[in-house]
């Protein structure tokens, strides 16, 4: 069985907001170490990977590995019924087809109970190899959100170039083009500043609609890390106290 007590429902609400438009149904894999989710979007271009560590919960118990198949739209609706600062308790029995959620109000005696149907999901999981990336960029997550939103007005794709100069985001639309250069900030470390580590010049092109989607996770962390190597998927990572959310995005490559 699973019983997990989260100090604030906000984390789950924000996580669901970050993935619900990318993925329709997914398995939350629960085990004694915590809760993990890995899911690809329908077109198999992007993958989201979530980890919530057992230590991030006020109380956590999971006796044996338990996949909780969830429709993310339904989960989002049920979580909307929780206030951000409610304590959130999720429970599932072994082989159950129901997930129960309890929201305890912080400053009153209000206790709300909801139940959600679980489903069997036959999803492909992928082996993601450990990669030594050629470039790592760490920047304020709000800055990343602004860049991808701004450039998505101009065109469908962004070219990301990491060089000695810094990291440059380039959009070449049909009617307009633009580019944004971020230099490493020497006097300011993350979360406010930008750090760039580079072993090799990197130049990759990605679809902006996915990056705009990933940027929703800025509600979970003030810092985002971009990890890039030529001709491999981009890793966009947001770390927060209880775990992380990571996105992988396949590049666009010339024939």
């Amino acid at each position: 069985m699973l019983e997990a007590r989260l100090a604030e429902a906000a984390i789950l609400k924000r996580l669901l907001d970050s993935i619900k438009e990318l993925v329709t149904d997914a398995n939350f894999e629960c085990n004694e170490e915590g809760i993990n989710l890995q899911a690809m979007d329908n077109s198999h271009v992007a993958l989201v990977s979530v980890k919530l560590s057992a230590s991030g919960f006020k109380k956590y118990r999971c006796d044996r590995p338990l996949p909780l198949g969830v429709n993310l739209g339904s989960f989002t609706k049920v979580l909307k019924c929780a206030k951000d600062d409610d304590v959130c308790i999720i429970k599932a029995a072994d082989d159950a087809d129901i997930l129960s959620l309890t929201y305890e109000a912080r400053n009153s005696d209000r206790i709300a109970e909801y139940e959600m149907k679980l489903m069997d999901i036959d999803a492909d999981t992928l082996n993601i190899p450990d990669t030594d990336y050629d470039a790592r960029v760490s920047m304020p997550s709000a800055e990343f959100t602004r860049i991808v939103r701004d450039l998505s007005q101009l065109g469908e794709s962004v070219r990301i170039e990491v060089s000695k100069e810094g990291v440059r985001f380039i959009s070449d639309g049909e009617a307009a083009n633009g580019n944004i250069l971020l230099r490493q900030t020497d006097d300011d470390a993350p979360p406010e500043g930008v750090t760039i580590e580079m072993n090799q010049h990197v130049n990759l092109t990605f679809s902006l609609k996915y990056l705009v989607n990933f940027a929703k996770s800025s509600t979970l962390s003030n810092v985002v890390q971009l990890m890039l190597s030529n001709d491999v998927p981009l890793l966009v990572s947001y770390d927060f106290n209880q775990g992380h959310i990571r996105y992988y995005l396949a590049p666009k490559i010339g024939d």
């Binding site: 794709s157 396949a250 666009k252």
Partner: peptide, 14 residues
């Protein structure tokens, strides 16, 4: 002309 690659061409199934 660039072509969108699939993640499956980078990451294998376990």
């Amino acid at each position: 002309k660039l072509k969108q690659k699939s993640l499956m061409s980078f990451f294998g199934k376990p």
